[in-house]
Amino acid sequence: MGFWAPKTVGIFLRKSLVISFLATVMACQNGDQVSSIPYYNSPDFSPHFLDKIEAKGRIKHHIDHFYLKDQHGKIFSQDNVKGKIHLAQFIFTRCGNICPEMISQMKIVAKKFSTNPEVEMLSYSVTPWIDDVPTLKKFAEEKKIEAPNWHLLTGSKSVIYNLARKSYFAEEELGYTKDSTEFLHTEHMILVDRDGRIRGIYNGTLPLEAEQCVKDMEKLLTEN
C-alpha cells in the first residue's frame, strides 16, 4: 500500500447519511434553530448539532495561529482567514498518487467560490523542505490553479504538521501520539467556519464529496 490509502466510498457515504439524518431530527426538535452543519470538537470527528449559543459554549476547539508563505511568496496567516470560511487540504508537489485527484476536487470548490471574498482555499504542503515558494508557483502554473483565493502554503514543517494533526485533526485515527518526524498523509479536506471551528470533513479524492462540500459551504456562508 502507498502512503495515502483512501478510505472506502462506503464509509463516507454512510457517514454523510447519518449526519444528514441527525441534522434533520435535531432541526425538527429545535424549531430549525440547530445548524444543519455539525461542529467537530475532537479528533474522532463526532458530530455536534447545536444552535449558535450552544456552540459558543461547548465547542472549544479552534484552528491555531500560523504564519506561512503562499505560492506568490506572500505571508499568509490566521489573519487572512479571520471572519471567513476556509477549506484546507494537505498535499505535496511530487505526489503522483492521490494528489492529482485532490487538486481536481478542490477545483470543483474553486469553480464555485473563486470570486467570493468570504472564502479561502488552502493547500498545505506536507513536504515543505522540497516545496519552496518557486516550486509551489510552478506547480500552480502546471495545474492551472488560478483562483486568487486558493493558496498553496509552505514554511516550517513543525508548524504545518502541528496544524494538520492538532488543529485540523487531519489524521484523526492517529490522535496526538504520532511521531512528528514521520511523513504526514491524509486525503481529507477540512471545512472551517468564520470562527475557526471545524464544520466538515470530506474525502478529497471523490467528486461526490467535493459537491457535498460546496453545498455545506453555501450553507455556512448564510450563517451570521
Rank of each mutant, 00 (worst) to 15 (best):
F90E: 00
I91L: 13
F92T: 01
F92Q: 00
F92W: 10
F92D: 02
R94P: 01
R94S: 14
C95E: 05
G96P: 04
G96I: 07
N97G: 09
N97P: 00
N97K: 08
I98Q: 04
C99R: 03
P100A: 12
P100Q: 09
M102T: 05
M102L: 12
M102D: 01
Q105I: 03
M106L: 13
V109T: 03
A110F: 02
A110R: 01
A110H: 01
A110S: 14
K111S: 15
K111H: 15
K111T: 12
K112G: 00
F113Y: 07
F113T: 02
F113L: 04
S114D: 13
S114V: 05
S114T: 07
N116S: 10
P117V: 10
E118R: 03
E120R: 06
M121G: 05
L122H: 12
L122Q: 10
Y124H: 11
S125D: 06
T127K: 11
D131F: 10
D131Q: 12
D131E: 12
D132C: 04
P134D: 11
T135S: 14
K137P: 02
K137S: 15
K138I: 06
F139W: 10
F139D: 03
A140S: 14
E141R: 05
E141A: 15
E141F: 09
E142C: 00
K144M: 10
K144V: 06
K144R: 13
I145S: 00
A147K: 05
P148W: 08
N149P: 06
W150V: 05
H151N: 10
L152M: 11
L152N: 01
L153S: 10
L153F: 10
L153G: 06
